[in-house]
Computed example of a mutant assay.
Amino acid sequence: MKPTLQTHDEEAPTTPESWLAPRQGWMAGRDEDGRLLVDFPGNPGGPAAATLAMPMDTQAAKAAVARRQAVMLVFERADPRRPHVLSLVYTPSETPLLDSVLEATAAQPPEDVRVDGKPRALDVKGSETVSFSCGAARVSLQPQELLLACWDVRVKLTRQELLLQCGEASFLLQRNGRAVTRGVRIESHAEDTQRITGGVVEVN
């Protein structure tokens, strides 16, 4: 829901009887004592300090003044110098379905991060290294590197290569097309034909 202010091209009447009826105005600022000021069509004396029928914290009040929040006013003893804010004025959104989806999304904590089974909002920033651990499992983030480790099993990912390592065995894939397999003992089995082809084949 988005607040909108309805403007009037004609000045409202200023007879004593006219101040008995509610009328629409807007948040106009705050005075030296922090009270909210409102203005309205036909105002004979400029923005006036108003009382409110609803609670409003400092941050909400600043936002209302900044956007000239529309309000519904009544006047104590029909005196335009003594306005009272009955309510804020809203108009239906032009995109109610989108608004409802955005509000529902904003109200839910992200579920991709859980601590002891409970979803937690996570906002962590670091210029060099950010690490998370749980028991033997560890995640380490650097500007150009992601490392996953648990016991002696590691997965390292950078822009240039992917390394899978388990103890003495490892498999390295590089962006330039190089693939390296290392281990104490390497075995390769095929149920059918196994071929080794290459521009140059070296066996040492």
Rank of each mutant, 00 (worst) to 15 (best):
C134E: 10
L88H: 04
V184M: 08
A121L: 12
T181Y: 08
V38R: 02
P109H: 07
L141T: 02
A179C: 07
D123P: 05
A63M: 15
V139P: 00
A49P: 09
Q24A: 08
V180D: 12
S170R: 04
A50K: 01
Y90S: 06
A136C: 04
E103K: 15
A78L: 07
V130R: 03
Q160W: 01
E111I: 10
E17A: 14
R67P: 07
K62V: 13
E11G: 04
F132P: 04
T129F: 05
L86R: 01
D112E: 13
E161A: 11
P143M: 07
L20Y: 02
G45P: 00
E10P: 05
A149R: 11
R178V: 04
D123K: 12
E103W: 14
G34L: 06
M54N: 08
P41Q: 10
F75T: 11
R35H: 09
S170A: 07
V115Q: 14
P41K: 02
A136I: 05
S93C: 13
Q142T: 02
E168T: 12
A49W: 00
Q59S: 14
L73G: 13
D152P: 03
V85A: 03
A49M: 06
P80E: 08
D123Q: 12
T129S: 05
R195K: 15
V115H: 14
